[in-house]
Amino acid sequence: MSITQWAAEARKGDDEAFAKLAGSCQERLYRIAYAYLKNEADALEAVQETVCRAYTKIRKLKQPEYFLTWITRILLNYCADEAKRRSRSFRPLAEYDAGVWDATADPDLAAAIEGLDEKYRRIVVLMYFEGFTLTEIARILELPDGTVKTRLHKALGELRRHLGEGEWNHA
């Protein structure tokens, strides 16, 4: 079965399908939570709380094909609330040890990303570290596609200005 099929079954009350769904995205959720909350225990708690919230609200999932987007949004909201509550700063990307790009390979780029405003950094992390598309990011952050594109463009512009026009260029 696919994630979409599991989500459809979970919406109907199939606990086994929900368990498969949760297991299929647990690692990705953990990486995102760890990037925000900066330690293993907090990230594990965030994933656990996210899965619990998703389980209790699975019947509200309107489109099963967007389960991953939906649960990621729940996680991001939880992490944002926790970060505010604990007054913690965003974890330096140079310490980020999983994902598409190895931030330790270029400390200058990691520092530049760390210096971005949160609304830009969030999009950069979701796109370049987690591999989400612009459309998926827009759904996760509940923003129009155009806003995500604009913020990504501005983020990349800030990174280019900080780093110079050198070889690094993802746009």
Rank of each mutant, 00 (worst) to 15 (best):
Y96L: 12
L76E: 11
Y96S: 00
Q63A: 13
T69E: 13
V47E: 12
E142D: 14
E142W: 06
G146R: 15
L116H: 09
A41S: 15
D97M: 00
G146V: 12
R151D: 04
T147A: 15
E49L: 11
L156D: 06
L29N: 06
L76H: 06
E45V: 01
G115H: 07
K119G: 00
D102E: 03
L68P: 10
G13V: 04
R121P: 02
I32M: 14
D102N: 06
V100R: 01
M127A: 13
L143I: 00
A7T: 11
T133K: 08
S24H: 12
G99Q: 05
Y34C: 05
A33M: 08
A171T: 15
D102W: 01
E165V: 14
A94S: 12
G157Q: 11
L93C: 06
A98C: 06
D102G: 02
T69P: 03
H170K: 14
L163T: 14
A94W: 00
L76I: 07
I137G: 05
L21E: 09
L143N: 10
N39T: 04
E130L: 10
G13T: 01
R86S: 09
K84R: 15
D42P: 04
T72E: 12
Y30F: 15
A171C: 10
I32F: 15
G131V: 10
D102A: 03
L126Y: 07
A94R: 07
I137D: 06
Y96G: 01
Y120D: 10
W168V: 14
Q48R: 13
G115E: 12
Y36R: 08
A43C: 08
D108Y: 08
Y120A: 07
V47G: 13
P107S: 05
I74Y: 11
Y128F: 15
Q63V: 15
A155W: 08
D117Y: 03
E114P: 01
E158D: 12
G99I: 00
F132D: 10
D15M: 08
C52T: 09
K62V: 14
A10C: 08
D117C: 04
E65M: 06
L68I: 09
W168Q: 08
Y120V: 00
